[in-house]
């Protein structure tokens, strides 16, 4: 479904909702539609999730399908695998993406590999829903890590940037027969829908947004800026400022890391001749290099005047605000970088 076809539909006014409420509603719709969907996670029941992304679900679906888990991620991530093998469709919530370290085994050796190891006979319909990104809580609570999961074969990796996609991509994730790491941005979960720059109306019925389809959000001539998750909002803001200066930026929202739609990015970069990948994840061995390389492979090195990356420069996220601002990409950093690029070759 594409956003423009929705413009004519009557919609409930959700503009005052927090994003997390939209996510809770999305899960509820899928749970009503399919009795094999269930959720496990810490604080998802009585508390409705630390961000409210499962609020109200315990009342509607009961403790069997909304299971409050102890802090035992290794066990309940693995339970997700067993439940999927038993024919259920678990959504396992891991509060912060940083905590996936304690249960990585079940994610990368079981969920990611079993479909292949079984010769395609074992389906693995499981969603690991988690929150990433920086909200000022230092090294162990500020990571994105989508590059890490993307590196491990067998996982689909999703990182939405706006309310419409949060719903559509989550619906796709729950309906997918593959394991999906669905990474929300902590800084967006409590944001009101009306406060998003990219604020497509949300229809009153379930819809899916397919994986692997990047979307061009602003048409531009000078620089192609590819990014995802909450950096998209920053990029849109930067593009507005740069527009005033006569620099026209084409912002591409990648939406998913696996599958990665390099094609859309390559087509844009072939036109603008300049590609900047902005990534809130670490710089090296990750999404930004992978995307640049694929684009170069597709259109050839001669088709681009400039290829650059802006990401966390391979350093743990520091506690102090002055240091954090230096290493985590923000609007000003994006503007500076695009400006320099546009002045260049």
């Amino acid at each position: 479904m594409n956003a423009s076809t929705l413009a004519t539909e009557a919609v409930t006014d959700r503009s005052g909702w927090q994003l997390s409420a939209l996510i809770a509603e999305t899960i509820a719709w899928e749970m009503r539609r399919d009795p094999s969907v269930l959720c496990i996670g810490e604080d998802i029941g009585r508390a409705g999730g630390v961000f409210g992304a499962t609020r109200g679900l315990l009342d509607e679906f009961g403790a069997g399908r909304i299971m409050d888990a102890p802090i035992a991620e290794m066990a309940f991530a693995g339970m997700g695998v067993g439940l999927a093998q038993a024919g259920m469709r678990p959504l396992v919530e891991l509060m912060f993406v940083d905590f996936l370290g304690v249960c990585l085994e079940q994610i990368f050796n079981a969920a990611a590999k079993i479909p292949y190891m079984s010769g395609g006979r074992q389906k693995m319909p499981i969603v690991f829903k988690t929150a990433g990104g920086c909200i000022g809580s230092a090294a162990q609570h500020s990571q994105c890590l989508w590059g890490l999961f993307a590196h491990l074969p067998g996982l689909k990796v999703v990182a939405p940037s706006n309310p419409f996609d949060y719903r559509g991509l989550l619906t796709s994730a729950i309906r997918s027969d593959d394991p999906v790491i669905y990474i929300e941005h902590k800084g967006q979960l409590l944001k009101k829908l009306s406060d998003f720059r990219n604020n497509t109306p949300i229809p009153d019925r379930a819809y899916t947004v397919p994986f692997g389809r990047a979307v061009v959000l602003t048409k531009g001539r000078d620089v192609t800026l590819a990014t995802l998750s909450s950096m998209v909002e920053h990029a849109l803001e930067a593009a507005l400022v740069l527009e005033q200066e006569g620099i026209s930026v084409e912002v591409v929202d990648l939406r998913t890391v696996v599958p990665l739609d390099h094609d859309t990015v390559a087509r844009s970069a072939a036109r603008t001749g300049r590609l900047l990948v902005v990534d809130e994840d670490y710089l090296s061995f990750g999404l930004s290099a992978e995307l640049c390389m694929r684009v170069i492979e597709q259109i050839g090195p001669g088709a681009l005047r400039q290829v650059e990356r802006l990401a966390v420069p391979d350093v743990p996220v520091p506690a102090a605000l002055a240091l954090e601002r230096k290493v985590v990409p923000g609007v000003d950093m994006i503007i500076d970088r695009v400006r320099t690029m546009a002045k260049g070759a």
Partner: peptide, 10 residues
């Protein structure tokens, strides 16, 4: 204690 790198949790 940690030159502002660690913060309250670390």
């Amino acid at each position: 204690l940690c030159r502002g790198r660690g913060g309250h949790m670390h």
